[in-house]
Design a protein around this nucleic acid. Structure first.
Lengths: 198, 198
DNA sequence: GTCTATATCGCGATAGAC
DNA sequence: GTCTATCGCGATATAGAC
C-alpha cells in the first residue's frame, strides 16, 4: 500500500545509513563519530541524516541494534545445523569483538550515557539486558540438565554476572588490549562446571 | 617554604572543591554536573574553578580519586583491628554504592569516556584497574591458602573478572535498581569456594 | 596568585526553502 | 527528501582586574 514505494525506500535508506555508520565507527571509534561525520559517509548533510532518526541518541541506539542483528546473522550462518549453544555463541562474539574496537567503544560509551533517566537509548539497553539474561538463564538451565554446569548455581544471578563480566571486560580491554576478553569469559564459564566434569 | 602559605591554601581549596563536587554529584548525578554547576556549589565562577584543574576531564578524575580515598578511609575506620579481608571490603563498598547512585553514574560514565586514547582521566583508570587487580590477586592467593577459595583458580583471571563484574553490575543497576550489586558480587565469590567449604 | 568577564568553537536541533 | 541557515548550549582559552 506504500505510495510509489517511498516508504520502502525510506527503510532502505535507513539500512544504508546504519551499515555505513557501523563501518565508520568500527574504523574511527566513537570519539570522532559526530552526526556530521556519519552524514558525510553516506553523502548527506547533518540535517539530511537526522531526517531518518529523531535524534542522535536514537540514531546510535539503532546502530547498535543493527550491530546485534549482524552479529546474530554471522553466528547463524556459521552454525547452520545448530550445534552451538547460546554460551558458545556468546564466547565467539566476545572473541570477534577484539577485531572491532570502535564498536566495542560505541557500546561501552552509549550504555554508560544511557544510564541517564531520559536518554533515548535507555529502552534499547534495558530490553537488550532483559533478553540476554532470559537467553542466558535458559542456556544455564540446559547446561545444568546436561551436567556441564553445576546444578547448585542460581541461573538468574549467574546470568546477570555473565552480562556484567562481558561488559566490564570490554572497558578493561579498551584501556589495555592485552586482556583477552574471550579467554576470560570462557574461563569464567569453565570455573562453573561441576567438579566431576573434566 | 611556601610563601605566605599560598601553596597550602591552593591545596586546601582543591580539597574543598572536590568534597563539594562529590556531594553535588552524589545528589544530582553526572548528567547535570557541568563545571559551572560544581563551581556554583563552592561560590566560584566556572573559570575560577578551572584555575585549580587543568581541564574538566582532569577535574572529574580527581573527584573519583577523592571518592576512592573517602571510601578507603570509611572502610579503615570501620575495621580498626583489620579483621576484614580485601574481598569483604570490596563487597561492602559495592553495598554502599547503592546509596550513592550519582557517584556510581559518574564512575560508569567517566570510565567509558576515558577509553578515548587522549582522555585525561585514562591514566587514572588504567592505574586504578592495575591496583585493584594487584590487591585482588593477593587476596585471592590468601583465600586459596586459607582454603576459602578453590586452589585451582587462576588468581589473575579471577581478579580481572571480579573487576569486570563489579563495573558491569553498576551499569545494570543504574538501568534497573532491582539488581542487588552487593548480593551478586558476594554470590560470585561464594560460587568460587571449594566444594568442601560450607 | 586568584579571579571575572568575554570571545570562540563545535556540537545537535530545528525552521523553512526547494 | 534533502538542503541551507540559524539557534542555543557547554567547554575552553585568554585578557586583564585586583
Amino acid at each position: 500500500m506504500a505510495r510509489r514505494g517511498s516508504y520502502a525506500k525510506g527503510i532502505a535508506k535507513r539500512e544504508e545509513i546504519l551499515t555505513a555508520a557501523l563501518d565508520v565507527i568500527a574504523r574511527n571509534g566513537y570519539g570522532r563519530a559526530s552526526v556530521r561525520e556519519l552524514a558525510d559517509a553516506v553523502g548527506l548533510s547533518q540535517a539530511g541524516l537526522l531526517h531518518y532518526f529523531s535524534s542522535k541518541e536514537e540514531l546510535f541506539a539503532e546502530i547498535l541494534r543493527k550491530r546485534d542483528e549482524v552479529d546474530r546473522e554471522v553466528l547463524e550462518a556459521a552454525d547452520a545445523d545448530h550445534e552451538l549453544s547460546m554460551m558458545d555463541g556468546f564466547v565467539q562474539v566476545m572473541r570477534h569483538n577484539a577485531d572491532v574496537p570502535g564498536l566495542v567503544q560505541l557500546y561501552a560509551r552509549l550504555s554508560a550515557e544511557a544510564t541517564e533517566a531520559d536518554h533515548a537509548a535507555r529502552p534499547f539497553f534495558t530490553e537488550r539486558f532483559r533478553i540476554f539474561r532470559e537467553m542466558s538463564v535458559e542456556s544455564i538451565r540446559e547446561g545444568q540438565r546436561d551436567g556441564t554446569l553445576r546444578a547448585d548455581l542460581d541461573p538468574e544471578k549467574i546470568a546477570s554476572l555473565l552480562l556484567a563480566a562481558a561488559d566490564g571486560l570490554q572497558t578493561q580491554w579498551l584501556m589495555d588490549p592485552s586482556i583477552d576478553m574471550g579467554d576470560h569469559i570462557e574461563y569464567l564459564l569453565a570455573s562453573l562446571k561441576p567438579p566431576a566434569a573434566e
